[in-house]
Design a binder for these strands. Structure first.
Lengths: 182, 182
DNA sequence: TGTGGTGTACCGTCCAGACGGTAGAGTTCA
DNA sequence: TGAACTCTACCGTCTGGACGGTACACCACA
């Protein structure tokens, strides 16, 4: 693994495990088996490190999403369905998610990166769609997935597996291509 | 206003305006027209201040919600509908929301407070309900509202007012008491 | 009525340690 | 050889928190 990605990985671990307050250059360097000087060679400032972290998280997320979309035969709403599936995935590991949230809290301007990425997916859904009402449903499902993402990341609701399953089924139903709007 | 709430208020302003990194005791003291010593009299540690801030935000949110629920004639799903209305409210001011997110990022254990509060509302919805499928829809709507909350707080999607309106209508429809599950 | 005592609220200063970042020498390898 | 990379040592600044002190309200009791 390249030193660069070892460092962003280490930063994620520290952020998720010890919180934003503990996300210092020294801590990240120690976690990544790099000296502080080495870290600063790759990321000149802390800000750059945070941008790298967020970019890394979003890229992986995007890749996961693309893969799921490609496997979906129907282009209409495929992004929304992939989105739900990705969030609900059982191997959904909260480290990257928590780290993403932490980094954005520390450096609010990184929200721009979220916006860019989100815009792509919205466009992907909107394009092959005729009915505007369908788009609203897809948006709704996506927002619910975001909510689920937040809930799982912060562990806010204690959802049983059964309820989570029913919820995801319902979301997928709303995002289904051959929807009869039930 | 009591010194205590003046301080949490000041902390919110600083957190939302200048970011987590700038949320220092001195900055909060200056913003609240209190000396650092005075601040530390009311909140012995920074952690205590963050808990106070989160508690404050959630309490107000709860109060807003309760008020809306009381005005709703039908108890079934009233919490979910109130939730949507509160998130979508045009005077939804992002300062408290941003601060809430920032404080939680800084002190992840405050998520416990979210959990407590969320549990109350979920219980409020689940109790007067017969059909389990309805509960899933209410949960879905609530999650979508959480997603909308996050989106508005971080300004992730650029939702037009028109789309936002349509979205909220759809959410309220799904949460409506006399639902025919359309 | 006055005097001493107690508790609450608040202030400003100080400090050890942690922080982000710099400087420059050393190492590895094409 | 030189470029890419990594190291250790260091600097100036800021931070959370401790601390000693002030102001004032209230109360007991002589």
């Amino acid at each position: 693994m390249s030193a660069r990605s070892r460092i962003t990985e280490g930063a994620m671990t520290v952020a998720a495990r010890d919180g934003v307050g503990a996300l210092t250059l020294e801590a990240v360097a120690a976690e990544s088996d790099v000296s502080k000087g080495g870290l600063l060679y790759h990321f000149a400032t802390k800000e750059a490190l945070l941008y790298g972290l967020v970019r890394d998280c979003l890229d992986r997320w995007s890749a996961d999403l693309s893969e799921r979309i490609d496997r979906d035969p129907d282009p209409a709403g495929a992004a929304a369905r992939a989105y739900v599936a990705a969030v609900a995935a059982p191997d959904h590991d909260p480290i990257r998610e928590t780290a993403l949230l932490a980094a954005t809290a520390l450096e609010p301007t990184t929200a721009d990166l979220w916006r860019e990425t989100a815009a792509e997916w919205t466009a992907a859904d909107a394009t092959p769609l005729a009915d505007p009402d369908r788009l609203i449903d897809l948006l709704l499902v996506r927002l619910a997935a975001d909510g689920l993402w937040l809930a799982r990341t912060l562990d806010i609701y204690d959802l049983t597996d059964e309820r989570l399953g029913a919820l995801v089924d319902r979301m997928q139903q709303l995002a289904a291509a051959e929807s009869d709007t039930t």
